[in-house]
């Protein structure tokens, strides 16, 4: 396999994996729900983005033609991730979840 492509695919896989892991670490260790919300919405989306980029490069190289199907998954996730985060944040405010004492400002009553 072509060295350069193989290197790029490997790099994309590793970057994607690391970001997916970081997002999940945030989910597991941050102290309150609103803070936990930050990890998955950003890092996990980029994590999938990385693996999808890898798959894109890999298959395009193999078939000697641009394979763009995977972009649809990434596009879909980029559109939906903020929406689900928004809905979950609303649900959390509705239930008046505990937040860390030093949080400035206050959530709205639902």
């Amino acid at each position: 396999m072509d060295q350069v492509v193989e290197f790029l695919v490997s790099a994309a896989i590793l970057v994607g994996g690391v970001f997916a892991l970081v997002g999940s670490i945030g989910l597991a260790r941050l102290p309150d729900f609103y803070l936990r919300l930050h990890g998955p919405t950003k890092a996990s989306t980029l994590g999938v983005g990385g693996t999808i980029l890898a798959s894109l490069l890999f298959f395009s190289w193999q078939e000697r033609a641009l394979q763009l199907q995977e972009v649809l998954i990434a596009l879909f996730l980029f559109i939906t991730a903020p929406v689900s985060a928004h809905m979950l944040a609303k649900a959390a405010m509705h239930r008046d979840l505990k937040r860390r004492e030093d949080t400035r400002g206050r959530p709205w009553k639902q």
């Binding site: 997002g23 989910l27 919300l37 996990s44 999938v48």
Partner: peptide
Amino acid sequence: LPDRALALDTMYIN
């Protein structure tokens, strides 16, 4: 409950 929902959300993305 929202924590669990968020965990599931992250899980399907991963």
